[in-house]
Write a protein that binds this DNA or RNA. Structure first.
Length: 208
DNA sequence: ATAACGATCCAG
DNA sequence: TGGATCGTTATG
């Protein structure tokens, strides 16, 4: 059995969404077929009090999607060359999103290899910039509703045994927040995996 | 108006 | 460990 995630899933608290997205399939429709990957690493960015969050200074031309209801994509451009894929969480006007940091390639691996210029499976989607390049995701895809026809997230029954937790990668502010989550067993997580502090946890968690 | 800096990646 | 590369944001 395989079910599409609906609105009620995305409207949940951001940390719940970030944890529960692990193990799900992210699917994009392209000319010539679908591409998909299993989500193995995520990060939460939550509200105006989170100094690492794009919404910290209020609504802008770039981040307006974060203020919409959960279930939309928020894609932005950084470092002059990389796109970052986020999934908006929580109800409208509660700005929050989950950064998709790494996938395990599943469908359309040939196309991903062509876009990435390598055949190494581990190099295909093991990073937020890499996976956008592999799946051909750009800022033009920001604002897509994942509950409508087209792109979506699928629960195919896969279970993640151990979820790892750490500080978020590549930020300077709010480094004390342990809002990065990843599948301990996956070899497709972005490196280095030695980001401190690390500690494992059970299934879903709802506290900071 | 201008300058600094990214939720990164890759080569050397 | 540094350079690529450019839109966004902070500052004068």
């Amino acid at each position: 059995m395989s079910t599409k995630l609906e609105r009620d899933f995305y409207l949940q608290p951001t940390l719940t969404v970030a944890c529960d997205l692990l193990g799900k399939l992210f699917v994009v429709k392209k000319r010539g077929g679908s591409l998909s990957g299993r989500i193995v690493e995520t990060e939460a960015y939550i509200g105006q009090d989170d100094l690492a969050c794009h919404a910290r200074s209020g609504r802008t031309r770039r981040n307006w999607v974060m203020f919409e209801q959960g279930g939309l994509t928020y894609v932005y451009f950084v470092y002059g060359m990389y796109n970052m894929l986020n999934i908006v969480a929580e109800p409208k006007d509660a700005p929050a999103a989950v950064l998709i940091r790494a996938l395990e390639p599943v469908d359309g691996i040939k196309a991903m290899q062509r876009r990435r210029g390598t055949t190494d499976l581990r190099a295909l989607t093991s990073g937020p910039g890499k996976l956008c390049q592999a799946l051909g995701i750009t800022v033009a895809d920001s604002g897509r509703d994942l509950t409508e026809n087209g792109w979506h997230v699928i629960d195919d029954g896969h279970k993640v045994e151990q979820i790892g937790r750490s500080g978020r990668i590549g930020i300077r502010e709010a480094t004390e927040k342990l809002w990065r989550f990843y599948d301990e067993e996956s070899r497709f997580v972005s490196g280095p995996k030695s980001v401190q502090p690390r500690r494992t946890m059970k299934k879903t968690m709802k506290e900071n």
